[in-house]
Structures are given as C-alpha cells and as structure tokens.
C-alpha cells in the first residue's frame, strides 16, 4: 500500500466512469458514471494529502532542524499552520463532494422534468434544440 497503488486505483475507477459516461444511453447511468469519476478524484486527493510532503517541510532532506521542524517542536503558530496544510487534499475532497451533491440534485431534476414532458430517458434522443 503506497501512493502509486492509490493513484492507479483512482485512475482505473476514473477510466471506468469515463467509459460509462461516454457510451451509455440511459441518462441516469451517465449520471452514475459521473459520480464514479468524482469518487476517483476524491481518492486521489486524499491519498496525495496523506503521502506527499509540502515544500515547506521538505526544504531540507535532513529535515529535523529546519525552521518548520523547530516551529513544530515549539508548538508555535507557524508549526500549527504547517501541520494543518497537510489536510488541504481532504478540504478539496469536501468541496468535490459538495459539488457532486449539487450536480446530482440538479441533474436528476432535469431527468424528471424531461421524463414528465417528453417521456425520454435516452440521451441520444434529447435533441429538441438541434438545429
């Protein structure tokens, strides 16, 4: 279990989702595949935030007497800030989940509106605005 494993897993799930989103006819399946892609991105973001070292901490490979390391050992403001930047990837995942929730609510509302007015759930037949 290392970063490469997580990134490859995320890439595989993203590709499966992309394939489904490009090829499926049923509009709800397309939305589900888009959700799969969101999930893959979340896995990548969280794995990055767990494994990758921020530049401030990696300034010196012998690490333990850099300014950041001293700040952390003193428990000062700078040290706390440096440690909290480790979780930026998780913050990104929170925002991705929020946007996914908004997207699925609106997307399914569109599906229901379309089904109610024209009885269509096939994306290849949604061509009312075709010139």
């Amino acid at each position: 279990m290392n970063l490469e494993n997580f990134l490859i897993l995320s890439g595989v799930i993203f590709s499966i989702g992309l394939y489904g989103a490009l090829t499926k006819k049923h509009v709800i399946t397309v939305l589900m595949c888009v959700e799969l892609m969101f999930n893959a991105v979340n896995i990548a973001a969280v794995a990055m935030s767990r494994y990758i070292v921020p530049r401030s901490m990696a300034a010196d490979p012998s690490a333990l007497d850099t300014a950041v390391a001293i700040a952390i050992s003193e428990g000062s403001e700078l040290g706390e800030t440096a440690l909290s930047t480790l979780l930026t990837g998780q913050i990104f995942a929170v925002f991705v989940i929020t946007v996914a929730a908004a997207e699925i609510a609106l997307g399914l509302a569109l599906v229901m509106a379309m089904y109610r007015n024209r009885e269509i759930v096939d994306v290849t037949k949604i061509n009312l605005m075709k010139g």
């Binding site: 290392n2 970063l3 490469e4 990134l7 490859i8 995320s10 890439g11 595989v12 993203f14 590709s15 992309l18 394939y19 490009l22 494994y51 990758i52 070292v53 901490m57 990696a58 490979p61 012998s62 690490a63």
Partner: peptide, 24 residues
C-alpha cells in the same frame, strides 16, 4: 479511455513522488 488510463498509470508510476520516507 485506454489512452487516458495508460497516461494516468504511466505518470503515477514514473513520477518521483516526494513522500515522508524520503525525509526519514
């Protein structure tokens, strides 16, 4: 999709990720 997956796998394997063990 095969092209994109190949690109993702290639990049994630060949990049030199700077992780914690490199700092000891």
């Amino acid at each position: 999709v095969a092209l994109i997956l190949t690109a993702i796998v290639f990049v994630s394997v060949s990049t030199d990720w700077r992780d914690w063990s490199e700092l000891g």
